Lab assay of single mutants.
Amino acid sequence: MIVFVRFNSSHGFPVEVDSDTSIFQLKEVVAKRQGVPADQLRVIFAGKELRNDWTVQNCDLDQQSIVHIVQRPWRKGQEMNATGGDDPRNAAGGCEREPQSLTRVDLSSSVLPGDSVGLAVILHTDSRKDSPPAGSPAGRSIYNSFYVYCKGPCQRVQPGKLRVQCSTCRQATLTLTQGPSCWDDVLIPNRMSGECQSPHCPGTSAEFFFKCGAHPTSDKETSVALHLIATNSRNITCITCTDVRSPVLVFQCNSRHVICLDCFHLYCVTRLNDRQFVHDPQLGYSLPCVAGCPNSLIKELHHFRILGEEQYNRYQQYGAEECVLQMGGVLCPRPGCGAGLLPEPDQRKVTCEGGNGLGCGFAFCRECKEAYHEGECSAVFEASGTTTQAYRVDERAAEQARWEAASKETIKKTTKPCPRCHVPVEKNGGCMHMKCPQPQCRLEWCWNCGCEWNRVCMGDHWFDV
């Protein structure tokens, strides 16, 4: 396979590697080409510095992935760790964990309700045991953590790749202090920090972006993250068709209702045909949960890209028209025109101005929308079919299609509260000796007794199943 190397943020060049090629071997190839010592090179990928003893497969490097290699003399205490030698983080029983690669970060837990604080980093599902597709590297999971809308060759929703760059020099040479644990960490600028490894760059702020994971991409090709779309790892039924499908869209209502993408497309087109989208002054033209839940309008309007190009163009047109109407304007009634106009409040005669090729020149009556006339309008008909009709959803289907309910059931079956801080902690095999993952707590306690870890627990039921 081919990976592209950008040395000291210059133009990239291809390097041929195998899945079992080590990072140090990659350094040696680059060092020979650039005429520099291999031990002064640092390989940066997806916000993480890659260790010498890791392989291309370990690092989730795919065909035509772009890695950054910078030349920086080692500072005291760094060289041993980078070589894969006596790194205290690798000691058996050590409590410190390697910062998780962005290629394996899962933010789907952050669609849980606000009262489930902490689960994004504490609760991990076991539903990723799908067998890898044919042709994928051994052991590589097909679980997708992110979804994007690819405006490039795909023109559809695709699995996405999370990447990070330095907000100062805009190069992907920043190593994160810690990985993101929720969508806010990724979507809110300057929320996460790190250290830029580019020479002479003092940058410390992280800037995240997404790429389409279905095809090789260049540095400049980015895609918009659709953070309401998630892999259906909890096997929730769709609120409309009641099938279990994946991926799904999880509405931001209190129940976190789930809808499959085909039904979401149908829901949007139906509402669009009836012009029953909601115009929100802050958000724009949007839709609420299909069950009509309060405070559930979709905030990231790129989710409506699921409509496809033709329907999305209609959505944008109707949204612009609705904006004009909300501002007190009118639409030209001549067939084939429909231009938005903003006449004076007491102006009865409205002319669709033909300047700049935008208007048709038609003069019409503001009251009856017919060709302009003197005197009273002959008839004014009330528009028919403008009443909002509820999208029919079966109550039982709505009850079963809740992301929140599956989460709470998982928590109930696989977790116990920490005796000190009461945060839910998952036990997935292993011994009875637990350690609270909350940095402010870190209590060592017994899963069996529910009390602080002691010699009695150690001698009596340390390794009970």
Rank of each mutant, 00 (worst) to 15 (best):
V3M: 07
V5C: 13
N8Y: 02
P14K: 05
S19H: 10
Q25C: 05
A31P: 00
G35T: 04
G35I: 02
V36E: 02
D39P: 04
R42Q: 09
I44D: 00
G47M: 11
K48Q: 07
N52P: 06
D53E: 14
W54K: 07
W54G: 04
V56P: 02
Q57V: 06
D60L: 08
R72Y: 14
R75E: 14
A91K: 09
V111S: 12
L112E: 14
S116C: 06
A120V: 04
I122C: 13
A134L: 10
G135L: 12
P137N: 13
A138E: 13
R140F: 10
N144Q: 10
F146N: 01
Y147A: 02
Y147Q: 02
Y149D: 03
P153H: 11
C154R: 01
R156D: 12
Q158N: 09
P159Q: 08
R170M: 08
R170C: 08
Q178F: 06
P180Q: 01
W183F: 06
V186R: 00
N190E: 10
N190I: 04
E195C: 08
C196R: 01
H200S: 14
C201A: 01
P202I: 09
K220E: 14
H227I: 07
L228K: 03
L228S: 05
N232C: 00
S233L: 07
I236V: 12
C238F: 00
T240Y: 06
V244S: 05
R245Q: 07
R245G: 04
R245K: 13
L249K: 01
Q252I: 03
C253W: 01
I259N: 01
C260L: 00
D262N: 04
V269K: 03
V269E: 06
R271I: 03
D274E: 08
H279L: 09
Q282L: 11
C289K: 02
C289T: 02
V290A: 12
A291M: 14
C293R: 01
N295W: 04
S296F: 03
L297S: 05
L301N: 09
H303M: 06
E310Y: 11
Q311L: 04
N313Q: 13
N313F: 15
Y315H: 04
Q316P: 00
Y318C: 03
A320I: 14
E321T: 08
L325E: 04
G329D: 03
C332G: 03
L342N: 10
K349D: 05
T351D: 08
G355Q: 12
N356E: 09
A363M: 14
E367Q: 11
E367F: 09
H373D: 02
H373C: 03
E374D: 09
A383V: 10
A383G: 10
T388Y: 11
T388I: 13
Y391M: 07
Y391T: 06
V393D: 03
D394I: 05
E399Y: 11
A406C: 09
E409A: 08
T410I: 08
I411D: 15
T415K: 10
T415V: 11
C418L: 01
C421D: 02
G429H: 15
H433A: 06
K435W: 05
Q440C: 11
W445Q: 02
C446F: 02
W447K: 03
G459L: 15
F463M: 04
D464K: 15
D464F: 15
